[in-house]
Structures are given as structure tokens and as C-alpha cells.
């Protein structure tokens, strides 16, 4: 045991010295050096082909590819949200068959790579050459060739939409579960039907939980549409590929596509921020704003 002397009394309080973060300075120097090197390389390495990048940046073929990408993203997301909502709510059913069907859907579509699913839909005619509209084992009303019905666009929508639905189902399930059971009971006690309770009481309150991951899904989906290139559907990436297949300017055109992806994901991040603020209104505003800032940081 040591005895400590009482602190000496002074006439004035001791000044506090500024803490010096030497470690951080080292990191800053390294980061600045790396950043400078990357910038220097971007500017001086002629193989980046910046003139080519900007030559094609607003070309008709790239813009039409961008439009196709946006269209694919939007339609797949709508399918994902609607179907995912249904599947997610089915999962909460007390009927084991309904809940089980929902589980199986999510298990299959989350358990296989979306790339493989896209290839499957693209080759569906090998599995079902003819698609018949009619009563099973009964009369048929119309027959279609699968190749005519499942165009690359339709295959892309099916692949992306069903896959997205599986992920959205999990998000919806978690969101619905986050709402206090008492809310449902209070609504039921007021004579509301099940659909009304879900639509007016549960889902709006699940929104703050639903929106951040849904925004991430949308941004992820936008980038995943680039896999549709494998179906020879001229979305943004495939349009770029078609161009560099002819002029061999591979790197500049990949940069052109990447810049567009960055622009759109940035815009979507802002939209997500606005939506989150809107739905955060009746909840704790400060927390949700902090979270949003973090989300944007992740997404961008």
C-alpha cells in the first residue's frame, strides 16, 4: 500500500494542455498521399480516356441504356415491394401452410444467386417451350411460345422482381413485427377489420423501420440490373459493352457507366433521406435524422 500525499493547493487552477493525436496525423498524411497519387494518376494516365468518357457520357445509346436501367429498377422494385409485402405478411399468418409457402419462397429466391435466376428465366423456353393459358388438365384458351412471351426484358423483370420480393418479404416481416401488439389490439377493439388494421395502423408505424433497408434495396437493385447484361438486354452496362465491343475503349466506357450509376444512387440516397424525415415526424426526429445521415453515408 502506498499513501498518496494530498494535492498541493494553488492560487490558480492548472491550465489543460491540448491533447495531441500523433497517430491521427500519421493516418492523415498517408490518406493525403494516397488521395494525391490517385488524383495524379486519374489526370495523367491517358488510358483512362477522359475525352472518350465525356464523348459518350450523354450519347443516345448510353442514355437509352440508362433509361432501360431505370425502367428495370422501377418495375422490379414495384414487384418486389408489392409481392414482398404480401409474402412478408403471409409469413406472419397463423396458418402453417400459408406461412410455410412464404418461407419456401424466401428460401428459394434468397438461396440462389440472382445471376443464376436471371439465366434460368432467360432459358425458360428450354424448360417450357410452350406456355398455355387454361384450366390445368382441362381445356386451354391460348398458347404462347415461351420465346415470344418471355423476352429478355420479361426475363429480367421476373428474375429481378422475384428475387427482390424475397428480400423485401424479410424486411416487411421485420417491420410489421416491430409494431407493438397493443396497436393491433386497440385497432381491433375499435372494430377495424384485418386489412384496415394492417394498412392504417401497422404499416404506417412500420415505415421508419421499413424505409432505411428498402432504400438500400432500391440502390442495390439499381446496381444488380447490370447483371441483366447477360440476357443481352441493352440496359446501361450492356449498352456500354456494345459500344466498346466495337471501338475497344473498354475502360472509358466502363467509367461512363459507373459515373451514371453513381449519379443515380446519389439521387436515390437523397430521396431516401427526405422520405425518412417525412415518416420520422411523429417519432423521435433527432434520432431518425442521425440515423439517416449514417444511412446516406453507407449508401453513397
Amino acid at each position: 500500500m502506498t499513501t498518496t500525499a494530498p494535492p498541493p493547493t494553488r492560487s490558480a487552477p492548472l491550465p489543460v494542455a491540448r491533447q495531441r493525436h500523433y497517430g491521427r496525423w500519421v493516418v492523415v498524411v498517408v490518406l493525403v498521399a494516397v488521395g494525391g497519387f490517385v488524383t495524379f494518376s486519374l489526370v495523367t494516365n491517358p488510358r483512362f480516356g477522359w475525352p472518350v468518357v465525356f464523348e459518350w457520357f450523354t450519347s443516345e445509346r448510353i442514355l437509352s441504356g440508362l433509361l432501360n436501367t431505370l425502367e428495370l429498377t422501377l418495375i422490379s422494385m414495384v414487384i418486389g415491394v408489392v409481392l414482398g409485402g404480401v409474402v412478408g405478411i403471409m409469413r406472419l399468418s397463423t396458418n402453417p401452410v400459408i406461412a410455410g409457402a412464404s418461407w419456401a419462397f424466401v428460401w428459394f429466391f434468397r438461396g440462389t444467386p440472382v445471376f443464376v435466376q436471371l439465366l434460368f428465366w432467360g432459358s425458360i423456353s428450354a424448360l417450357y417451350p410452350v406456355i398455355v393459358l387454361g384450366v390445368p388438365f382441362g381445356p386451354s384458351f391460348a398458347e404462347f411460345s415461351a420465346n415470344d412471351l418471355i423476352t429478355p426484358f420479361a426475363a429480367a423483370i421476373l428474375g429481378l422482381g422475384l428475387n427482390e420480393a424475397a428480400y423485401m418479404a424479410e424486411i416487411v416481416r421485420a417491420g410489421v413485427r416491430s409494431v407493438d401488439e397493443g396497436q393491433r389490439e386497440a385497432a381491433a377493439a375499435l372494430g377495424m377489420g384485418r386489412a384496415r388494421i394492417m394498412w392504417r395502423v401497422v404499416l404506417p408505424q412500420a415505415m421508419p423501420v421499413l424505409i432505411p433497408p428498402t432504400g438500400n434495396e432500391l440502390i442495390g437493385l439499381l446496381k444488380t440490373t447490370s447483371m441483366v447484361a447477360v440476357l443481352a438486354f441493352p440496359e446501361l452496362l450492356y449498352s456500354a459493352q456494345l459500344i466498346y465491343a466495337v471501338n475497344y475503349q473498354t475502360i472509358p466506357l466502363l467509367i461512363t457507366a459507373s459515373l451514371w450509376y453513381l449519379i443515380v444512387t446519389s439521387v436515390l440516397s437523397i430521396g431516401q433521406y427526405v422520405l425518412e424525415r417525412h415518416y420520422g415526424r411523429s417519432f423521435s426526429a433527432r434520432v431518425s435524422r442521425k440515423k439517416t445521415a449514417a444511412m446516406i453515408g453507407h449508401a453513397a
Binding site: 397493443g182 396497436q183 389490439e185 377493439a189 404506417p204 417519432f283
Partner: peptide, 15 residues
């Protein structure tokens, strides 16, 4: 509809 109920934890719709 014709049976009103008040809960221990109020259960007002928070939104």
C-alpha cells in the same frame, strides 16, 4: 364496434 375498450398501456396510434 359497440364494445369500447381502454387498455392499461393506452395503445394510442403513435403516428
Amino acid at each position: 364496434r359497440s364494445i369500447g375498450m381502454v387498455f392499461q398501456r393506452f395503445n394510442l396510434f403513435s403516428h
